[in-house]
């Protein structure tokens, strides 16, 4: 059992949770993920670290309430327990020797982008962060990013309620056009990563994306998370989650992410019957 140390609601449907997991925190690196089960009936669901402390033995992650597991998570408070936390899993994101990098964090993906950008800064890369969200309300971790020694922070919202009005691909394209970046990394919804990769491809700027396929064990055993990268089958959990964005088959990824949509609706509806949180 893993104790919840703190929770925080960042917006209507976005939450942050800090959990005691000393063995996991001791080995965590930027870009890696862990698998959790909320309770004895729980599904194994991967989440990427937004932060951790090896010294204090905790990990932190940010999630949007989209289905049953994330709904159950919103019901937990400090002092409650998660049934299982296993990790860290996946290959850490590459940092250092990248030169001038643009890190794009879209929606909840910003939570993953934060430790990645921090690791790149620490490794001597010159980092520009592009932070995107649908609106100001959904923008997360802006203050944390501002505290990093970034070259620049560009905030984008779809509706213009904060920062610049528009999609993250606009400033990314400008950076490419002016030759201001040597590498790019995009973390967010698959559709956003797809368009980021399409944007940089034109300028041949190497671009890494952090994929979030469905997983079960998270250790390479089941193959649920298989993705096509350059026509080759890769497992998101052990070969990734980071892959060359110019080679990923995003259409396939998005199709595979939708396989249980109906089941998820059924399970969440079933759970919501006995629940009055209104989420």
């Amino acid at each position: 059992m893993f104790e919840v140390l703190a929770t925080r609601q960042l917006s209507d449907a976005v939450f942050e949770m800090k959990v005691a997991a000393p063995a996991v925190a001791a080995k965590a690196h930027a870009g890696q993920f862990f698998i959790l089960r909320v309770d004895a009936e729980g599904e194994r669901v991967p989440f990427t670290f937004s932060d951790w402390s090896a010294e204090e033995g905790w990990i932190r992650f940010i999630f949007m309430r989209v289905g049953l597991t994330t709904h159950k998570l919103t019901h937990l408070a400090a002092g409650d327990f998660l049934a299982d936390v296993a990790g860290p899993l996946g290959v850490p994101s590459h940092a250092g020797g990248l030169g001038r990098v643009a890190v794009v964090g879209g929606g909840v993906g910003a939570a993953v982008a934060y430790p990645v950008a921090r690791a790149m800064c620490a490794a001597g890369d010159e980092v520009t962060v592009i932070l995107g969200a649908r609106n100001a309300e959904l923008l997360i971790l802006e203050d944390e990013f501002r505290a990093l020694p970034l070259k620049d922070l560009v905030v984008m919202t779809d509706d213009g309620s904060a920062g610049r009005h528009g999609l993250v691909t606009a400033p990314l394209k400008e950076l490419c056009e002016t030759g201001a970046i040597d590498h790019a990394m995009a973390i967010g919804p698959a559709i956003m990563m797809k368009f980021c990769a399409a944007t940089t491809k034109e300028f041949a700027v190497p671009t890494v994306v952090s994929l979030n396929p469905i997983m079960v064990d998270g250790t390479g055993m089941c193959g649920a998370c298989r993705v096509s990268v350059g026509g080759e089958m890769k497992f998101g959990c052990v070969d990734g989650p980071d892959f060359d964005g110019h080679l990923v088959d995003f259409e396939e990824l998005m199709s595979r992410q939708r396989v249980y949509v109906d089941d998820e609706r059924v399970a969440d509806a079933e759970f919501s019957k006995g629940c009055s949180c209104g989420l």
Binding site: E41, E43, V216, D217, C222, G223, Y260, D263, A267
Partner: peptide
Amino acid sequence: SSNEFLTRVNLMRAYEFPRSDTPVW
């Protein structure tokens, strides 16, 4: 893969879905 199918059903008890949380096609 047979691994995934059997893991969903055996380990995660997808045959009891939605009483258990893990679905299987």
